[in-house]
Write a protein that binds this DNA or RNA. Sequence first.
RNA 1: GUGGGUGUAGCUCAAUGGUUAGAGUGCCGGGUUGUGGCCCCGGAGGCUGAGGGUUCGAGCCCCUUCACUCACCCCA
Length: 421
Amino acid sequence: MEPITSIRGFKDILPGESEKWQFVERKAREVFGAYGVRELRIPILEKTDLFRRGIGETTDIVEKEMYTFLDRGEESLTLRPEATAGAIRSYIEHHFYETDPVARLYTIGPMFRRERPQKGRYRQFHQINVEMLGYEDPRVDGELIGMLMAFLTSLGIGDLDLEINSLGCADCRPLFREKVVRYLGDREDTLCPDCQRRLRTNPLRIFDCKVAECREAVREAPVILDSVCDGCRDHFEKVKELLSSIGVPFRVNPRMVRGLDYYKKTAFEVIGHSLGAQNAVAGGGRYDGLVRDLGGPDIPGIGFAIGFERLVSMLPGRDEDYSPAPDIFVATLGREAEDTAFRLLNDLRGKGLRAETDYSGKSLKAQMKRANRSGATHVLIVGGDELAEGALVLRDMKNGVQEKMPIPDAVVKIEEIFHVR
RNA sequence: GUGGGUGUAGCUCAAUGGUUAGAGUGCCGGGUUGUGGCCCCGGAGGCUGAGGGUUCGAGCCCCUUCACUCACCCCA
């Protein structure tokens, strides 16, 4: 019989790896908590229209990457390709703004995009998202970006670059876009085929192209930071100032653009240099106007998304550093010993200790081998001979020293070693 | 969607077109009646991704297909 395999681009997160995920989540809750950011849990399936309206009809995501199907042949549903649209749908649906327009939310979970998998890119991938709704103030931009960097730092991840840019607002961006189209339109024949297409679909993206001819064409092109309106310029200047004031290093990248239509003003990206071609570990920006576009009141917002898989791949150390070994391994010799050991294990675990054993009935040698491999620092050997006098053997695996002692004494000794009661 | 690379033991990898496809590691057992790591010995484990073709003979050459992987596109 042919075994059934997982789907292309869908990955199992195995023990050894999953502990790293738990570590990241634990840190996220801890750091975000300090900023008053609270968890929102939302469905992974939404009505397709939510994403069409939220992300933009002409984006790649909506045009060709969504997992969309008809539910019972009636309603079009989509596995979420990103989290912001759903979070805002929830914010609007539950009338958050009636009691308090300000909301600081995070979500953690899977996203789905039907792209060709490669290093750091999967069809089911996971994101940690933070959304801060209700504030137009640049201090929120600074706070949010500062929090992101604090989080990454708390994980022990180095070798990161923060890049920021301003994309302009609904007033000034269209003007800039026209300027760019006019400028590059005159040089269309020097652009690569992809960029000739982008000229019509997403001209700002040309700034990001890696082809040498396009870089040349773009070199003298108008820069968005020179073209934004006074409001956007002041906002951006303030964000930069605030980041500097809290010691967050950044680089202004005037060519950075974002893939989703809704971004305005502040945009940012965190680049990890060990990641390969897909090198953005986090990205985000301001999306004033999105809440209104999704049918809510005109409330501003800003947020970011962190790529979980990419983040985990950057964690320092080995897998084992994130997976705690058991404290005690219990080995047995003989029928009676097995029953005693069973009760002993139950007691040890009741004290909060990580205790393991082996039920294969194999030799003590085999059990010791397993104990060693488990990484347990101590082994309790419950043997027939000692048991006859109500005793057992406690062995320290680090130095090989072992001692026979009455069961009650052994319990006290273990409590001392592990500081439990 | 497009292009490159790779598919051999659980894992990492060897093997001029020529006997019975090997090694390391892991697993199981022994060297020690009841003691792990280090060392020694033994054992199990393979339709060489799948299908077709060329050849006296294919893991190796050709075609097809599938999978994985990297890159483009795009993005976290």
